[in-house]
Design a protein around this nucleic acid. Structure first.
Lengths: 242, 242
DNA sequence: ACACTGATGTGCAATAGCGCACATAATACA
DNA sequence: TGTATTATGTGCGCTATTGCACATCAGTGT
């Protein structure tokens, strides 16, 4: 567990991958912010003021909410990434909403500070653009998965993506919320989760899901998970400091 | 109709929006390339060598093909955009395939030349990043649409997105191919198209679809179309030369 | 201990989309 | 002109998912 008081880039993999002197220039503008469950980080169409670099166990979900109230998750961001890419992409807002799906903390950075360094420093730029490409892959694969795979497969994918961003194998999340993310009925999640539990892959009760057999989940999941995982690894792994 | 022999940026809206001196530096490396229907522009996981700027009526579809052969479209690119963003994003390849969905021509540019100018010139960079954000919106909305909307609504969206990138109201496209794009059964497209035809919105026969009533289509389509359209306009419109 | 609230389980009819098997229609071309 | 090919239409039964109506269950707070 990271020390909440400490601004140490090691807790976010993007920040950790920055050249030291770039990080040092950002440091004065960074502060550790609490990210309580359900907090809306940014709202559809609203100009972003800050970007956030989650630390392990904090997960932010990007989702689109339709006019009739139904919703669908587009991507998730954890300690491997950043929330608020629209800032350096130049749009300053997006049609989607970002909300905290797993409570924790994140490094908060003023948009201006990020923009300033992004424009000035190739190291930061290359890193953030590669990250953005990985995020694009996640979004694309979400589209594909939504089209072709069963609720159960999607639940597996969702659990694994979440697990990759947590420091434990337990996630605090009701079936109702998962249903909102996946854009399916709550009962559909109940049924799928029931099957996974019956197979001994997970166990859950009242808003607490424990993954018992990660390998087993990986055996059930559709190819979408691996495609995304591989692309994140390809684009972001071994891009260490210096 | 653009003159095939002429390298004139006016035929692609991204190129047209470039500051004149940037375009002039790219011009020697640009060439007009034929884009025949069905041509694979790039393949999943393969490093890109060129990027392409389609001119009106040429449409390139980005799609993901699953291991079992089924597929789903992730986004479309026409004269408003560019094919091959992975080059400047730093990944050099993507897990998806790009293929020509509507025949025409595109400006072809060596990847190196694009990278060179992208790194050196803020004008090009800002423009391409804004474009990328628009593309991200399209992908996100595709994910949402795949989750929540009927084949008929999706067909409307698909027709309108295509129409926006064509210079006529006629598109050369079999129902089988549309089904591949939408990731649904061919019969599903037959049924949906039949309904639209019965309502007088389109007419079609053997691989040729004519849109008779664009406004009518817009009245049928789900909100996804407007979200994407608006975001493209917001991010890319009125970013004219100088 | 008790009631309340929120999370999960279950049953059922309705529907959208699927896979398959053909029938028919329009075009190409021999 | 006739024949092959390709596109489109149609009719099954099947399955996953939906919307709704409740039942039940596990904690929380008093």
């Amino acid at each position: 567990m990271p020390d909440p008081a400490e601004i140490n880039p090691i807790h976010n993999r993007l920040l950790a991958a920055l050249p030291a002197e770039v990080f040092d220039r950002l440091r004065p503008d960074l502060k550790l912010a609490p990210m309580p469950l359900g907090k809306v980080i940014y709202e559809s169409g609203v100009e972003l003021e800050h970007v956030y670099f989650p630390i392990p166990s904090c997960i932010v979900s990007m989702l689109y909410v339709m006019t009739d109230g139904s919703s669908a998750e587009i991507a998730v961001v954890g300690d491997e990434g950043m929330v608020g890419i629209a800032l350096f992409m130049g749009g300053d807002s997006t049609p989607s909403r970002a909300l905290v799906q797993s409570a924790g903390q994140a490094f908060q950075l003023k948009g201006n500070a990020l923009k300033r360094e992004f424009e000035r420093h190739t190291g930061l730029q290359l890193l953030l653009l590669r990250y953005t490409q990985a995020l694009i892959t996640q979004m694309s694969q979400t589209a594909v998965c939504n089209r072709h795979h069963s609720v159960e497969q999607q639940l597996c994918r969702w659990l694994l993506l979440s697990l990759d961003r947590l420091s434990t194998n337990e996630l605090t999340m009701t079936q109702e919320l998962i249903a909102n993310m996946l854009g399916v009925r709550r009962e559909g999640v109940t049924e799928a989760a029931g099957k996974l539990q019956a197979r001994g892959l997970i166990s859950y009760s009242r808003g607490r899901i424990t993954v018992l057999d990660r390998t087993g989940l990986e055996a059930q999941v559709c190819e979408c998970y691996a495609v995304v995982k591989k692309e994140y690894d390809r684009l972001l792994l071994n891009k260490t400091r210096h």
